[in-house]
Nucleic acid binder design. Structure first.
Length: 553
RNA sequence: UGGGAUAUCGCCAAGCGGUAAGGCACCGGGUUUUGAUCUCGGCAUUCAGAGGUUCAAAUCCUCUUAUCCCAGCCA
């Protein structure tokens, strides 16, 4: 009976459907190919959900996890572990073992030799600056390297000696022999191997030459039997090269590269480099700072994995440049949490309420449902006594009719408890309210006033003594502008209130709150205990997202 | 006259020659012990623009315009 939740139609699914119908493929095989040089973010989540989602939706389909690790200078094994965890947490499992491009270094080397033997590649000794000059510009063709037509045997010998470590970094490189006059810059004899005396996180010191992306990726795809190799739009110009490499070596499998547009999200940076800068400059606390759009950051913030998957499904897959509104992501988070988060009460900015007509040392144990629509979630017990705490924003000495909370001389409902009426207010010398004296109607527990009085407002509360102290980390968007990537100076657009820390109280039962488990603090928003900093002795709650608020006051 | 791509509602996005899906957002009504949720209703005579083909065009053709990507021994 399990309904397979397939994604909506998109141009890639159309291509796959067609390939299956025409018999080009019997089944499909995708791959998610991160470079282990940083942490995964919401943009990668789109790609993960696309690639693994396709594998889930089509019969006998598979999706590999492959680390594209051809640049040891930038990569690190720590990232490999973090990426694996992020993919798993998102809810996906890869086919078989994890793959690494570095697994194929020996085969890649052999294919490079094959290219040289067929006069399709040569060892070039131009330096970096010369190489750039020889490449030409966007509007003028390049010119051929003086090494382009050196004897095949000579290139073969040099390439072997490059591998043997006889030459210094930058002194030589292997280039594909294609067309220096091509209007496509990528086809102007692209570099396919460079010398790097660097320790590699997987292969150690075995190699001192490393293949470039364009040579590696297509061959890795072919070796793994990938049918559809999905990547982002900026690789469109690389496709002719992808096809060229596979057409000029003796490999049978010819995967098809298909490009789709990357995700841009309002008020969010999706560039590993820029995210890294935020960390380096201590603007955020780390990759998993709840304000980060990283998978680990969103997880710590309290976004359910399923809501990220749903978001990926909703935004679709096209070739159009796009910037998705943050509201769209938040809607997915709220939709999930509305159904799954048990309710609780928390007072974030407390002020004391004294029920003057309530017995001095009496305490009642009130029962409240954990969810207003889901009885299976059970109930919780709320101590209620003479002294309570409510939020400062929920009381005014005077207010117009639109204000539906506690007003001096008026009544309000205490959520899950009684109707109270504000009788008096006590202030300190500075004029700050320190106590609100109220009376309560003992006949209003679980029912409306019998005389027909209408009490419109409902506010939340916590017992003044039977409670748990808690720290609240109230998060807002990290940036003040919709497109922080376009800012000349990122410091100018940082939201100074992206994190506001408050000290308040939560109801008793939350002492055992499990990290990352979502709660709705009624009328405040969705929160979860912080996975790094919250302890039973010092509770710390992250605000995942506020409740929708159509009032605006 | 470098090359490659993209243009459908405020933001995403279906649509593939037969007369504009859906989601988010927004605006109204109802329910509500969360100003939440839920619910009902509204929201493109029009598909970047101009021509053309056709009984019929967002879909085909022509031209124009706008935007994005490409000159790392990064991926």
């Amino acid at each position: 009976m399990t309904q397979v939740e397939t994604g909506p139609s998109n141009f890639i699914r159309n291509i796959i459907d067609n390939d299956l119908e025409t018999g080009k493929h019997q089944s499909i095989h995708t791959r998610f190919p991160p470079e282990p040089n940083g942490h995964l973010h919401i943009g990668h989540a789109k790609s993960i959900c696309l690639n693994f989602g396709l594998a889930q939706d089509y019969s006998n389909a598979l999706c590999n996890l492959r680390f594209d690790d051809t640049n040891p200078v930038k990569e690190d094994a720590d990232y490999v572990a973090a990426i694996e965890e992020d993919v798993r947490w998102l809810g996906f499992e890869w086919a078989g073992d994890i793959h690494y491009s570095s697994d194929y270094f020996e085969q890649l080397y052999a294919y490079a030799v094959e290219l040289i033997e067929n006069d399709k590649a040569y060892v070039c000794e131009l330096n970096a600056e010369q190489t750039r000059e020889y490449r030409g510009t966007l509007t003028s063709s390049g010119k051929e390297s003086p090494f382009r037509n050196r004897p095949i045997q000579e290139s073969l010998d040099l390439f072997a000696r490059m591998r043997a470590g006889e030459f210094s970094e930058g002194s030589m490189m292997l280039r594909a022999k294609i067309d220096m006059a091509s209007p496509n810059m990528k086809m102007r004899d692209p570099v396919i191997y460079r010398i790097r005396f660097a320790h590699h996180h997987q292969t150690g010191d075995k190699w001192c030459i490393y293949p470039m992306y364009d040579f590696t990726h297509c061959i890795s795809d072919a070796i793994e039997g990938i049918t559809h190799s999905l990547c982002t739009l900026e690789f469109e110009d690389h496709r002719p090269l992808y096809d060229w490499v596979l057409a000029n070596i003796s490999i049978a499998c010819k995967p098809r590269q298909i490009e789709f547009s990357r995700l841009n999200l309002q008020y969010t940076l999706t560039s590993k480099r820029k995210l890294n800068a935020l960390i380096e400059e201590n603007i955020v606390a780390g990759w998993d700072d709840p304000r980060m759009p990283t998978i680990s950051g969103m997880r710590r913030r309290g976004y359910p994995a399923a809501s990220i998957r749903e978001f990926s499904k909703r935004i679709g897959v096209t070739k159009q440049e796009n910037t998705v509104e943050l509201a769209s992501l938040e809607a997915c988070v709220r939709e999930n949490l509305e159904a799954n988060a048990p309710r609780a009460m928390a007072v974030i900015d407390p002020v004391k309420v004294i029920i003057s007509n309530y017995e001095n040392d009496k305490t009642e144990q009130l029962i409240a449902p954990a969810h207003p629509k889901d009885e299976s979630m059970g109930t919780r017990t709320l101590p209620f006594s003479r002294e309570l705490l409510i939020d400062r924003a929920d009381f005014r000495e005077e207010a117009n009719k639109k204000y539906k909370r506690l007003v001096l001389g008026k009544e309000v409902r205490l959520r899950n408890a009684y109707v109270i009426k504000a009788e008096d207010v006590i202030k300190d010398e500075a004029g700050n309210i320190t106590e609100i004296h109220c009376s309560y109607d003992p006949e209003t527990l679980g029912k409306n006033p019998s005389d027909g009085r209408k009490v419109k407002g409902v506010i939340h509360w916590v017992d003044a003594t039977s409670n748990e102290a808690a720290e609240f980390r109230v998060y807002e968007r990290l940036f003040l502008v919709e497109n922080p990537a376009a800012a000349e100076d990122i410091h100018q657009v940082i939201n100074p209130e992206s994190l506001v820390v408050k000290q308040g109280f939560v109801e008793l039962g939350l002492a055992e709150a499990v990290a990352e488990k979502a709660y709705q603090f009624e009328r405040e928003g969705y929160f979860c205990a912080d996975s790094k900093d919250s302890t039973p002795q010092h509770l710390v709650f992250n605000r995942t997202v506020a409740l929708r608020d159509s009032w605006g006051g």
